[in-house]
Design a protein around this nucleic acid. Sequence first.
DNA 1: GCAATGACCTGCT
DNA 2: CAGCAGGCCATTG
Length: 114
Amino acid sequence: MQESFHSRVYAVVCSIPPGTVATYGQVAALAGNPRNARFVGFALHANPEPGIIPCHRVVFRDGSLAPGFAFGGPDKQRALLEREGVSFVEPRPDHANAGAEGGCVDMDRCQWHG
DNA sequence: GCAATGACCTGCT
DNA sequence: CAGCAGGCCATTG
């Protein structure tokens, strides 16, 4: 159980309050490496405890979710976030990425401030 | 021990 | 305004 980046990211993601979402860059920054946003996902991918890590609370900078890698389904992730109390915006707030056709978190209201 | 990859982000053309 | 490319750091095989 070394304090590798994995453990740190895991702690940060697990530290995200309910009804709130954080971006990979945010988690990466809190983990101590703002430039390792791509590695944050890697940490969750190799995460040691799948199921206890609220990966669904981690979203892109645009507010879109991770396509194809949702722990059980993108639709499930949207349901989980909504269930937590996170607000969702159907239309694209800005120029959203391809992949989140109807899954954009309202970063204006639910982005984790830390 | 070496090398390659990776749920991304940012900047430039 | 939009699309494209590259780079960062750490873990894994």
